[in-house]
């Protein structure tokens, strides 16, 4: 028996909007720790890892570890039917091939049940070891989204270079080149508006902008984004989900031929 009640149902709506274009089908894993997902895109270039900790749910009952295969497009369609202020409860019986999403309006005057078929998904689970990164950049998530969108109108790839001066995002295309430098800026009114650079070693890596633009669909989940960079390792683009966990995207770098 599984029963997860999330008062801030909009979080789950936002999570689905963040991952549904990158991944078609995925297994959601439920354990005492929380509700999690790990999945790769169809070309195995990017990986998404989601964790919503059990403590973040108003009610969390998971009698035994279960894995529920879902089509994320269909799940997003169902969650779109929930109001932004609705409380969302996920329910599944042991051995059942369906999951039920229950949406309650804040005043309890409207209650809806949506039942979705589960699927059997053969998915590979990757072990992601702790790593030391050469540089970690924290910046406003809206600023990062803007940069990715702007650069993708010029080129297909972005070179991210971190030095003591700041973090530079560069691209080149048929019409020309673009460079955007964000300097460390910790003297802002609100901490979420700061750009903070922790650098152990300068690093410069090339990535496909198409994937970054997909990751920025998670922007509504967090005011800030963290980029963890190391040469010869995938970049980690992390959006913290307040009080609950995170959504992390891993993208392998492009290598010069």
């Amino acid at each position: 028996m599984l029963e997860l009640r999330l008062v801030q149902g909009s979080l789950l709506k936002k999570v689905l909007e963040a991952v549904k274009d990158l991944v078609n089908d995925a297994n959601f894993d439920c354990s005492a720790t929380g509700f999690s997902l790990q999945a790769m895109d169809s070309s195995h270039v990017a990986l998404v890892a989601l964790l919503l900790r059990s403590e973040g749910f108003e009610h969390y009952r998971c009698d035994r570890n279960i894995s529920m295969g879902m089509n994320l497009g269909n799940m997003a369609k169902m969650l779109k039917c929930a109001g932004n202020d609705d409380i969302i409860t996920l329910k599944a019986d042991d051995g059942s091939d369906v999951v039920t999403f229950m949406f309650e309006s804040p005043t309890q005057d409207k209650i809806a049940d949506f039942e979705m078929k589960l699927m059997d998904i053969d998915s590979e689970h990757l072990g992601i070891p702790e790593a030391e990164y050469h540089a970690i950049v924290r910046m406003p998530s809206s600023e990062f989204a803007r940069i990715c969108k702007d650069l993708s109108s010029i080129g297909d790839t972005v070179v991210i270079s971190v030095t003591k001066e700041g973090v530079k995002f560069s691209t080149r295309g048929d019409i020309g080149t673009a460079n955007i430098v964000c300097r460390q800026n910790t003297t802002v009114d609100k901490p979420e508006e700061a750009t903070v650079i922790e650098m152990n070693e300068p690093v410069s890596l090339t990535f496909a902008l198409r994937y970054f633009n997909s990751f920025t669909k998670a922007t509504p989940l967090s005011n800030t984004v963290t980029l963890s960079l190391s040469s010869e390792l995938p970049v980690v683009v992390e959006y913290k989900i307040a009080e609950m966990g995170y959504i992390r995207f891993y993208l392998a770098p492009k290598i010069e031929d």
């Binding site: 790769m40 070309s43 990017a46 992601i128 492009k254 031929d257």
Partner: peptide, 14 residues
């Protein structure tokens, strides 16, 4: 040019 590496080249199946 540059080529795209797969994420599975960095992380192993568990």
């Amino acid at each position: 040019g540059s080529s795209q590496t797969s994420i599975t080249e960095f992380y192993r199946s568990t």
